[in-house]
Amino acid sequence: MLSIDCPWCGSRDQSEFSYGGEAHIVRPKEPEKLSDEDWGDYLFNRKNTKGRFEEQWCHTAGCRRWFNAVRDSQSYKIEAVYKIGEQSPDGIPE
């Protein structure tokens, strides 16, 4: 089981958290203007990165707040955690 550093509560067992998948997906401002292809891309297509990956976690059984993490999806090592609204360590804007 992973040990995850909640930015608010500190290090806790993974079983307290729920996974939220890829981070930094921007919801289209005017969805009605999108083509079916663009809407489908937003809804379903994912990076599914092998290696260093920005992703969302929620401390469901703790403070119940969402945050982002950079984790290596091959070694599973968590490299960094940062709050929603902050830039990722690799410079992906909020």
């Binding site: 089981m1 996974y19 990165t49 999806s73």
Partner: peptide
């Protein structure tokens, strides 16, 4: 496991 993983191993839990 709930997370994305390419490691061919998962969590004990």
């Amino acid at each position: 496991d709930s997370y994305i993983g390419y490691g061919q191993r998962g969590s004990y839990s």
